[in-house]
Nucleic acid binder design. Structure first.
Lengths: 144, 144
DNA sequence: CCCTGATTGTTAGTACACTAACGATCGCGG
DNA sequence: CCGCGATCGTTAGTGTACTAACAATCAGGG
């Protein structure tokens, strides 16, 4: 399956999962930005929504809950703090740990934007029918 | 649908398309990096594979073919040039344009890595059965 | 109680991604 | 042929993402 028969006819970039995945991600990012404007990025929203759900939480644990590695979550939390949506303090019981807490403004923002977040999900899936959406999500989850 | 009934029970971050999409992307990126090592990133591979397919090509046009905006494609092309996989020159007929060309090494690298690229696609979709893969790709394409 | 290994966080470095602002150029209509 | 809008590329700035190296700290065993 190498040289003679179908040289590079066998490889179509635009049919590879990774490529399409990136395009779908781009579309989702655009929809998200349109709904959230300069309020929050998708990453910040994920971290903040999870933080409000969990309450006080180690930076490390928060990162694991939202699938961000340590270096990434640090930057995201830093920007949440800068915007006044969260605060950080050292854990007195374990001085390695940094405890992140949602601020009242953070909780309010999550409540405020919940509808918009759901709209983004709906808009992203809009090209599919209701049954297709269910199938798609089931399959997508398996690829996690 | 705001306060009294289902406060934030209605929003589960880990069920939102955008969130799962990011996780699937992360997994794909990991598989890609494992297969390609330090040879090429997924972005560089996409750009180079498309460049070899198209032959000489405007930087702008290349970007459109691989869904990268102008600023992004500039960086990617720059790194391809730095690695010796492509060259750039001004279009004599339109001095705004920058023509990007694959180098012999670039063509060889694409040929060399075609199998690995297909392996990455296979590995990414491996959690699904053959029929599921087809359905998934059909649905995914609609969300582009 | 010290030693060692694991955990937590920070920093530096590379590579996407997108916006906005800018300069150079092209092409078309008047 | 002049001007003006559209196109192409570059730069700067912000925000992910991930690796690697490091410092501080904690926990458990000898």
């Amino acid at each position: 399956m190498s040289a003679a028969l179908a040289p590079e006819a066998a490889y179509r970039l635009e049919e590879q999962v990774g490529f399409i995945l990136r395009q779908v991600n781009q579309r989702h990012a655009g929809l998200f930005a349109a709904a959230f404007g300069d309020d929050l990025t998708a990453m910040q929203w994920a971290a903040l929504a999870k933080l409000v759900e969990l309450g006080d939480c180690t930076q490390n644990l928060l990162g694991r809950h939202v699938s961000m590695d340590v270096a990434t979550v640090k930057g995201v939390v830093e920007r949440l703090v800068r915007r006044g949506y969260a605060t950080t303090r050292q854990d007195p019981d374990d001085r390695r740990r940094l405890i992140v807490s949602p601020s009242p403004a953070g909780r309010a923002t999550v409540a405020d934007h919940l509808g918009r977040a759901l709209d983004v999900t709906r808009a992203t899936l809009a090209p599919l029918g209701a049954d297709e959406q269910a199938i798609f999500l089931t399959l997508l989850r398996k690829l996690r």
